[in-house]
Design a protein around this nucleic acid. Structure first.
Lengths: 230, 230
DNA sequence: AGAATGCTTCGAAAACGATCGAAGTATCAA
DNA sequence: TTGATACTTCGATCGTTTTCGAAGCATTCT
C-alpha cells in the first residue's frame, strides 16, 4: 500500500462520527469495553465491534482480552497526540458570545484529563502557576522543568529521577483546546495528574473525563504549587 | 454543530485519498494552484475544485486569488502539525528489507522540505551534526539551541535574535517519517532551510518536495556545520 | 473582439461504507 | 447443564460521497 493511501486510511478512521466518539472517550488513557464504547458513541454493539476491529487492525487501538470483556485503549501516546492535533483544528473559535453548551461542557472546560495529564482551566492554571514561579518553561512546542522545579516536585513527593528513567519525554507542552493555551504534558504531567488523584485532590466526574477539585485539593494546590483557581 | 461532529468532519476531510495527496503536496508550505494539485492527486480539475472548496470552508486551507490562478496553501502551521501527526501513525515500520519504491521515493528519502524546514536523510544529518557538536539538544517532543549553537548560527549569517522575535517557537523537533528520528523544525529550522536555498546549497527537484544538495552545498554544509552526508 | 486558459457549478452514475437484525461463539454464574 | 452476558460475524439495506462529463464564468492573451 502506498504511503499516501495509508495516510488517508488512518485519517478516514478518525473521520467517522461513531469512531471519533470512541477515540475521544479513550483520550483519558483508560481502557474501555466494547459495550461501554458502543453506548458512548450511541451505536449498537455490532457496529461498534466492526469499528473497533478496523481501528485495532490499523494500529490505532490495542485490545486486551480479559474473560468475556475486551478492553480497548489507544495504542500509544502518538495516537493521543494525533487526536489532540485534530481536535486543535476542530475546536471552534472561542467567540465573545460563545454559547455554553451545557453543564457537562462547562465541567470539561473547568478541568479534565487529557490522555494522562490535566487539562482545561485546572490544567492551565497549574501550568501557569509553575511558570510564574519559575519552576517551568513552556512554549507552544517545547518545554523544560527548571532546577527549582525539580526541587519543588521532589519535595511534593514526586520523584522526578525515577520518572525520567522511563524513556519517555519528561516535559512537553500540550495545547489546550478549550483554553487555547499550553498545559503541562509528558511524563511529569502524567505524574502530577496521578499525584492529584492519589491524594484525593481531584476526583473524576462519573462517566466523563471531567474532574472536580476537592476542597482539600484546592488548598493543597495553592499551598504546594501556588495555584489559585479563579 | 457538536464538537465531536466537527472533529469527525476535519478527520474525514484528510481521509480521502485525493485530498490526502493534496495536503501532502502542500506540506512544504508552498501555495499551489488548483490544477497543480489536481495533477498531483491524479484527479480531474472538477473533482479537485470540489475538494479544495470543502477544505477551505473547513479552515484547513487558505486561498489567494491572483489573476486567473487560485493559490492554495495550508491555513496554518497547526494544520501542518496535524498532518505530520497523522503521518507519524501512518508511516509503515521501517523493516530491514524495506522495499524501495522507486527513484522518486528515494529522492524524497534523501532530502526534502517538510512544511518549511528540511527533512529526510539531509535534514536528519544536519540535525545530528548539530547535536553531536553540542549546538543543539533535541528529544522527541522538545528541543533547545545551546549557547554555542547561537554563536554558530550567528556566524553563519543567520540572525537568531531577529528570528526569535517573530513570536514563533524557535526550536522544536519534528519526527521524520522516513528516518523515524527527529529533525530540526521551528523558526530556526525554517531559517536554516531558507539559508540553504538562498545560498544555492540545495535545489528543489522540480515538481516534488524533494531537494538535492549541490556540490558547493555539500562542501559548505561540511565546513560550516560539520555535516557529512554519507 | 475572439480564442485560450483556469477554475467552478450542475447533474447523474457508480462505489463505498455505515448500520443493524439475526445468528453464532466464548465466557461466566449458579 | 442451563441461562445470561459480552462480543463477533454475516448479510442486506440504505444513505453518503466521490467522480467526471458538460456547461458556465472569469481572466488573460493575441
Amino acid at each position: 500500500m502506498s504511503n499516501n493511501a495509508r495516510f488517508a486510511e488512518i485519517a478516514a478512521l478518525a473521520g467517522d462520527p461513531g469512531r471519533a466518539s470512541m477515540l475521544n472517550g479513550l483520550m483519558d488513557g483508560r481502557a474501555l469495553t466494547a459495550s461501554e464504547l458502543a453506548q458512548l458513541a450511541g451505536i449498537t454493539a455490532q457496529t461498534a465491534s466492526s469499528h473497533l476491529t478496523k481501528m485495532t487492525e490499523a494500529g490505532l487501538l490495542q485490545v486486551e482480552k480479559q474473560g468475556r470483556h475486551r478492553y480497548h485503549r489507544l495504542a500509544s501516546p502518538a495516537v493521543a497526540q494525533m487526536i489532540e492535533s485534530i481536535m486543535r483544528i476542530a475546536a471552534p473559535e472561542v467567540s465573545v458570545k460563545a454559547v455554553r453548551t451545557g453543564p457537562r461542557d462547562a465541567a470539561l472546560r473547568a478541568g479534565r484529563t487529557c490522555y494522562d495529564h490535566l487539562a482545561g482551566h485546572l490544567g492551565v492554571s497549574i501550568t501557569d502557576a509553575l511558570i510564574d514561579a519559575g519552576h517551568l518553561e513552556l512554549g507552544i512546542d517545547a518545554g523544560e522543568v527548571t532546577d527549582s522545579g525539580l526541587v519543588l516536585f521532589d519535595r511534593a513527593g514526586i520523584d522526578v529521577d525515577v520518572i525520567a528513567k522511563r524513556g519517555r519525554i519528561l516535559c512537553r507542552p500540550c495545547l489546550d483546546w478549550s483554553e487555547r493555551r499550553p498545559h503541562l504534558a509528558g511524563a511529569i504531567g502524567a505524574a502530577l495528574c496521578s499525584h492529584c488523584f492519589d491524594n484525593g485532590w481531584i476526583r473524576r466526574i462519573e462517566g466523563t473525563r471531567a474532574v472536580s477539585v476537592t476542597p482539600n485539593g484546592q488548598r493543597q494546590l495553592r499551598e504546594t504549587f501556588g495555584v489559585s483557581l479563579s
